[in-house]
């Protein structure tokens, strides 16, 4: 299981980096979602080899349970990631409405001029 997990984490990080470096807002957003999932998976992998172990639930008989702490950690990290991604969605949406573009390249184009204030 460890090799598969390692390759999966690597793929997720690679895909996330590729997407974040694109210009389109939607791709950047998906890149960050993948990035947080890759990190969560990495932490999960720290609970060790899961082969032949049971889930860490009180009262479930059977083999030795896996280390539950990384699962508690990623639960926290998922909740935090949920909040941050929700904020990112709204930030990108508002940037799109305010600046009339969905491309980061265009957004930070130095040739873009600040529009004149209406009252000035």
């Amino acid at each position: 299981m460890m090799w598969e997990t390692a390759i999966l984490i690597g793929l997720l990080f690679g895909a996330a980096c590729f997407l974040i470096l694109q210009a389109s807002f939607v791709r950047i957003l998906f890149g960050f979602i993948l990035l947080s999932n890759a990190a969560n998976l990495f932490v999960l992998a720290m609970s060790g080899r899961p082969d032949g172990k049971s889930a860490p639930i009180v009262g479930v008989a059977g083999a030795a349970p896996v280390d539950p702490l990384p699962q508690a950690l990623i639960l926290t990290a998922i909740v935090i990631g949920f909040g941050v991604i929700a904020y990112l969605v709204i930030l990108l949406y508002r940037t799109f409405l305010d600046q009339r573009t969905a491309s980061a390249r265009e957004l930070f184009d130095p040739a873009r001029e600040r529009p004149e204030e209406e009252q000035a």
Binding site: I20, I28, L35, F42, Y87, L91, Q99, L107, F108, P115
Partner: peptide, 22 residues
């Protein structure tokens, strides 16, 4: 107009947080 400056701030700190978690 200024709202776009929040974007690099957030993007870089998000990457930082992910690395922190790792």
């Amino acid at each position: 107009w200024d709202i776009k400056q929040a974007f690099p701030y957030m993007a870089l700190n998000l990457v930082g947080s992910t690395l922190f978690l790792v």
